[in-house]
């Protein structure tokens, strides 16, 4: 078998194994959470009797392993079950929420990834001169501020003072694309600022480390211009670390947007999960959790595979 196929197959099986491990971990963690859905629903009016009844009704009394097996079995067959709190099918709910989150993440990534890489290249080209300093300084400032802070500043300036963009990111399904984009412009801006610095700095560092190589000197002695040296000789060899950091940030855009979604009241996965945790709605928490895990694992697996593919020694063995 071609060594690449073998490596990719290895990564894939490792990913699946990891996903199972994550599911067990998630389940274990929800088990040790204090309180349960019955308690959360009954609240102050809980008596030992109706608690026991509700638990029986929700199926919380059965052994943990049985519940775990049922849950995993359900996911594998595409049936995610119903929420405990409102009895609605989880699959349908998550479908809508995940779509909204992906929509936001997609547009934020579409802007931030190219901008980050371009800024990284520019910073290397003008290393230690003012463009580098301005880029490094401003992106560092953006990453150092908490997201909600950036969000409120943007809301204050662009929504309240200037009135250019709405402070609530509402995207009903019948909205036209341009209107939707206008509606989520502020959340996109916040997310872009947050992930930009990390990706840009990593791109800069990766290219800088490649720039120390002897083949860069060869390229410079061929009389190529600085940008050509970076684009043709440095960048192809810096792809692996750059893809890695891009993937981590893409995962963050999907998984880590809780704060931003809450600030802008955006109906995505983050809000849904927070809501479910409050209600101790374990099936929803578990299913959201496993979807987040899957996103992380898949994106990192793609990064791994791209790294492998970008290595000519593996692509073209002797």
């Amino acid at each position: 078998m071609h060594p690449i196929l073998k490596l990719v197959a290895q990564r894939l099986s490792l990913g699946i194994l990891l996903l199972f491990a994550a599911s067990a971990l998630l389940f274990g963690l929800t088990e040790i959470l204090p309180g349960d859905a019955a308690q959360a629903q009954l609240g102050q009016s809980a008596t030992p009797e109706n608690l026991a009844n509700l638990r029986e009704e929700m199926g919380l009394n059965r052994p943990a392993l049985t519940r775990y097996a049922e849950w995993i079995g359900g996911i594998l067959t595409g049936d995610m079950g119903n929420a405990l709190s409102n009895k609605l099918p989880i699959g349908e709910q998550i479908g809508k929420r995940l779509g909204a989150t992906m929509f936001l993440a997609f547009w934020a990534a579409l802007i931030s990834v190219p901008v980050a890489i371009l800024l990284g290249l520019v910073a290397v080209r003008y290393l230690n001169r003012w463009p580098d300093k301005v880029i490094s300084g401003s992106t560092l400032a953006a990453i150092s501020l908490p997201e909600f802070m950036i969000a409120y500043i943007l809301i204050f300036v662009f929504a309240v003072k200037l009135g250019w963009a709405p402070s609530f990111a509402n995207v009903p399904p019948d909205m036209r694309l341009l209107e939707k984009l206008h509606s989520i412009s502020l959340p996109i801006a916040v997310l872009t600022m947050v992930v930009l610095a990390h990706m840009m700095r990593m791109t800069r560092a990766a290219i800088l480390s490649v720039m120390q190589s002897a083949y860069i000197e060869t390229a410079e002695l061929k009389g190529l211009s600085s940008f050509e040296v970076i684009r043709r000789h440095a960048f192809p060899n810096a792809v692996a670390p750059i893809v890695n950091v891009v993937m981590i940030n893409l995962a963050y855009l999907v998984v880590g947007v809780v704060v931003v979604e809450t600030v802008f009241a955006y109906p995505g996965m983050g809000q849904y999960l927070v809501d479910a945790v409050v209600k101790r709605d374990v099936p929803v928490v578990l299913t959201s959790g496993i979807i987040f895990s899957a996103v992380y694992i898949i994106l990192n697996m793609i990064a791994d595979i791209v790294s492998i593919l970008s290595n000519p020694r593996l692509r073209h063995p002797k």
């Binding site: 190589s213 002897a214 083949y215 060869t218 043709r232 000789h233 192809p236 060899n237 970008s310 000519p312």
Partner: peptide
Amino acid sequence: VSQSAAASFNPAK
């Protein structure tokens, strides 16, 4: 022409 051709050729091209 450098001492180490192995290092002076870009491995990706």
